[in-house]
Design a protein around this nucleic acid. Structure first.
Lengths: 143, 143
DNA sequence: CGGGATCCTTATGGATACTG
DNA sequence: CAGTATCCATAAGGATCCCG
């Protein structure tokens, strides 16, 4: 029979949802800025345009692969510009585009919120953890 | 000898970097809001407080595991409140805390930027892809 | 109803080696 | 110098079953 099972319905919902997410501007943006390295690259380039190797040194801990990948997607999205000077050895300069600069500004707002409110978040976290631990102890005592 | 190799130095940098990231408020926040479901839960709860199953239906495509996990971390961070009514069956209500409401407002700013600028991003992306494809064709012709 | 526990698949990202 | 290509470990997330 053509009865739709729960899992089928969930699957459908999931597919529809994914399609919705793909086209959603907010999630497109979020998946971009949530990237581990995008924020670092953006703020580094906000200070001044830089070469590939400069960025590699500036952003300690980034692997070549990730730096390249991050720069590529940012370039693809029109957020940074890539300028190749065909000397020997080659020289490649990266800079923010106007759009990228605009995003960097938004980033500042996010950063500001974080710095203003993070303490409260950390405190809430500590309270939560302390309570959870108390629960565990109470249960052990009861056994 | 005590010569530090390149990989050792990278490893050190990476460790120091990770420690830096842990304490960095901005990245703490970013890792929170970049979560696939946090945005959806926040906007759903911004409309009105809701029960667990309401949220599950409202946010199509979310698995129980992810919904629970998202709500737990949000509760832990003091962004949503969880209220249990010990009836049979139990009833659990979720709502935004003032801090959570404040974050939801920040979210609106992000959303606004996305909606205003996403078109330009998409266009840039299409230009980039078209150019990349042209490159491929040119190389095939040369062979 | 509101989850917890478990299994399993698929992304993500780092290390390494090589190249024009 | 500025990458590319490949391999591999880990973690994120979904499906499923079970429980008070």
């Amino acid at each position: 029979m053509a009865t739709t099972t729960a899992s089928q319905r969930r699957e459908e919902a999931r597919t529809a949802y994914n399609a919705f997410m793909k086209g959603c501007p907010t999630n497109l943006l979020l998946s971009r800025i949530s990237d581990k390295w995008v924020g670092l690259v953006l703020s580094a380039l906000k200070e001044r345009p830089q070469r590939y190797s400069d960025l590699g040194r500036r952003i300690a801990g980034v692997s070549q692969k990730m730096l390249t990948q991050t720069l590529r997607t940012l370039e693809r999205d029109g957020l940074v510009s890539r300028t190749v000077t065909p000397s020997v050895p080659v020289r490649v300069d990266y800079a923010l585009t106007p759009l990228g600069a605009s995003l960097a500004t938004l980033f500042s707002a996010v950063k500001e919120w974080a710095e203003e409110n993070i303490e409260e978040v950390v405190e809430a976290r500590e309270r939560y953890d302390a309570e959870a631990e108390a629960q565990v102890r109470a249960e052990q005592e009861a056994s």
